[in-house]
Simulated scan of single mutants.
Amino acid sequence: MIKVMIVDDSPFIRRIFKNIVEHDKELTVIATAKDGQDALEKIQENRPDVITLDIDMPVKNGLETLKEIMKMEKPIPTIMVSALDNRETVMKALDLGAFDFIPKTEQFPSTDTSSLSNTLIPKIKAAAQIEPKIPSYDIKPISPIKDKISKKDLKSKFPIVAIGTSSGGPKALKAILPVIPADFPAAILIVQHMPAGFTKSFADRLNQESAIKVKEAAEGDIIQPGLALLAPGDYHMQIDKDGRVRLDQTPTVWGVRPCVDHLFKSLAKNFKDRVIGIIMTGMGKDGAEGMKAVKKHGGYGIVESEETALVYGMPGAAIKANAYDEILPLHQIPEQLIKLIERRLQ
């Protein structure tokens, strides 16, 4: 039985969350708290397996509380609950070691809680399987590579790196994109499972920390070397044969939108052996079918190893499907990516 603590200053939301959690036979609510200070006191008494933590609270807010939780000898996996206008605070919480987050929309919570339940329950179960820690990676700086490659066909035949990730992805992406050199001769496309309203803030944050340009993808954007495009929340992203971004809101796949499989399959179909697919930490099995398509059309597949992946659902699914060439710890992926691209362009 997974023991859950619910922390929110709203009695109504505490009750809604409690009803959703206890509707699942594998979960139980061991305690609720009205603010961060109340939560920290009750953690000592009850020792939950997972915490849902509201950000906006009196006495001690969610971010302050999370800092205290992460200082504990055994930090507790924590899922943040945030209003849409708290995007930057959510990003800070993920930096501090929060497992994931759930957004409060204008309709949150509505009388129909099925959508919230479908989001909350899998995240709680996934969080219960991990040991949270403040992200720390030994990533080697990568030197400029413009003098190491041939410029032959670079404009029309540049490699395309496609990255798919979910829970734990924001931290993993921050271990990769900021170390990629400014003269990176490949296009980068990213699907990070993240709700609408948060992907632009995340892309802007990555852009500030990276030498390459990172932006939230828009309809009609053209892929190009040195540019990383992040799929917007609530939109599937595909790339057409002319290298233009195509966004749509067709039904969710594996319960998510954007879907990694959609992106990878479109790239495999249109760009074949130019594609390098990377599947990193995340819940579920999104990306495995897409990586199979990448491999089938002559592309290359890298999967993050279990030793560094916060959640091994997506990487594990790709491995089970035999859809990979290499399994690497996160800190080795950037350097190997450079080596692959250098070989392709020489």
Rank of each mutant, 00 (worst) to 15 (best):
D9V: 01
F12L: 15
I13A: 13
K18R: 14
K18H: 11
K18M: 09
N19M: 14
I20W: 02
H23Q: 00
K25R: 05
A33Y: 07
D35E: 05
D38V: 14
A39I: 03
E41G: 02
Q44R: 02
E45F: 04
N46C: 07
P48V: 04
L53W: 09
D56I: 02
M57V: 09
M57H: 04
K60I: 10
N61S: 02
L63S: 09
E64M: 08
L66W: 10
K71G: 00
M72L: 15
K74E: 15
K74A: 13
I76N: 00
I76F: 11
T78H: 03
A83E: 11
L84H: 14
R87A: 15
E88D: 15
V90S: 08
L94E: 06
D95A: 13
G97L: 13
F99G: 01
T105I: 05
D112S: 13
S115T: 15
S117Q: 13
P122A: 05
K123Y: 03
I124E: 04
I130F: 01
E131P: 00
Y137I: 13
P141H: 06
P141S: 05
I142H: 02
S143Q: 14
S143R: 12
K146T: 12
K148M: 09
I149L: 05
K157R: 11
K157A: 11
A162M: 01
G164I: 04
S166W: 11
P170R: 01
K171L: 07
I176E: 06
P178G: 01
V179D: 03
I180R: 04
I188G: 01
H193R: 04
P195T: 08
A196V: 08
F198D: 00
T199E: 06
R205G: 03
N207Y: 09
E209R: 09
E209D: 02
E209S: 13
S210D: 05
V214Q: 07
K215Y: 07
A217N: 05
P225K: 08
A228L: 12
L230S: 02
A231P: 07
A231V: 06
Y235E: 05
H236P: 00
M237R: 11
K241A: 14
V245D: 06
V245H: 07
Q249P: 02
V253N: 07
W254I: 00
V256F: 13
V256I: 14
R257H: 08
P258L: 08
F264P: 13
F271D: 03
F271H: 04
K272N: 13
K272Y: 09
D273A: 10
G282I: 08
A288G: 13
E289H: 07
V294H: 06
K296A: 15
K296D: 14
G299A: 00
Y300I: 12
V303P: 08
V303T: 01
E306H: 14
E307P: 00
L310H: 06
G316Q: 06
I319Y: 06
Y324A: 01
D325F: 12
D325P: 11
L330Q: 06
I333T: 10
Q336K: 15
Q336F: 15
L337Y: 05
I341G: 09
E342G: 04
